[in-house]
Amino acid sequence: MTDRILIAPGDVLAQPAAFKRRGLLFVLSSPSGAGKSTISRKLLADDDGLTMSVSATTRPMRPGEIDGKDYHFVDLQTFKDMVGNNEFLEWAHVFDHRYGTPRGPVEGMLEAGHDILFDIDWQGAQQLHQLAGGDVVRVFILPPSMIELENRLRGRRTDSDEVIDRRMARAHSEIAHWDGYDYVLVNDDAEACFAKVRTILHAERLKRSRQTGLIGFIRKLDTQDI
């Protein structure tokens, strides 16, 4: 009969779920009104291991927003200086304003194994993937129809007809880039779509390529008679 080794509860062999893991950059994109922001808020409330990336922007602060929490609000010249100093992982020009992801905080959290949520458009997702490659998971959320998307935008009662027309024109452009994403979902049911996004996040965390402590665990298995 083969001898068996009893493993103490704190031993690394008994704790495979505790492998050191590299963080991931979880990107959600969608046309305005397709539900991206709602799903982002639900993910953050549901998952303590996920942190929202705080972008810098040149747009004015809106009532209730907090500088450094919702956005880093900067003037145009400061933003241009940050671009020139290579301080952004990605940036884009959207609706007359500029938005960008500061490089330093994101790289630090990634190395520490923290996961970061990005609410950015296809341009930002593309730039982020070019720079960070395998660390990036891209999810695109589609509306069930363009008619429904327009109804949602008008139902907000926050934008003029002119702004809604611009958002709809941009939506067609954004949807044309659906094939640049790893996952594409249709948000015809908010709860069901959220559940699918959460499943994608959990599955991506378990990928072998992110388990940086796995090699050490395997080596221990090779040297112990269990």
Results as ranks from 00 to 15, higher is better:
201 L>C: 04
125 A>Y: 01
128 L>G: 04
142 L>M: 14
8 A>P: 12
176 A>I: 13
46 D>P: 00
37 S>D: 13
130 Q>H: 07
70 D>P: 04
131 L>W: 02
165 D>P: 06
16 P>V: 04
82 M>C: 05
6 L>H: 11
178 W>V: 13
150 E>H: 04
226 I>S: 05
1 M>D: 10
42 K>P: 00
173 S>P: 00
147 I>N: 15
182 D>I: 13
109 M>V: 09
72 H>K: 08
12 V>T: 14
57 T>P: 02
9 P>M: 05
62 R>Y: 09
226 I>Y: 09
134 G>K: 15
34 A>G: 08
115 D>E: 04
29 S>C: 00
168 M>H: 05
41 R>H: 13
155 G>R: 03
169 A>Q: 13
19 F>T: 06
48 D>Q: 15
192 A>D: 11
186 V>H: 03
16 P>S: 06
114 H>M: 12
87 E>D: 13
176 A>Q: 14
160 S>K: 03
144 P>G: 05
41 R>P: 00
182 D>E: 09
183 Y>D: 05
54 V>G: 01
135 D>S: 14
226 I>E: 10
66 I>A: 02
19 F>A: 07
210 R>P: 11
213 G>A: 07
194 F>V: 07
120 I>Q: 01
84 G>S: 11
74 V>Q: 01
26 F>Q: 00
94 V>P: 04
162 E>H: 11
63 P>G: 10
164 I>V: 15
185 L>N: 04
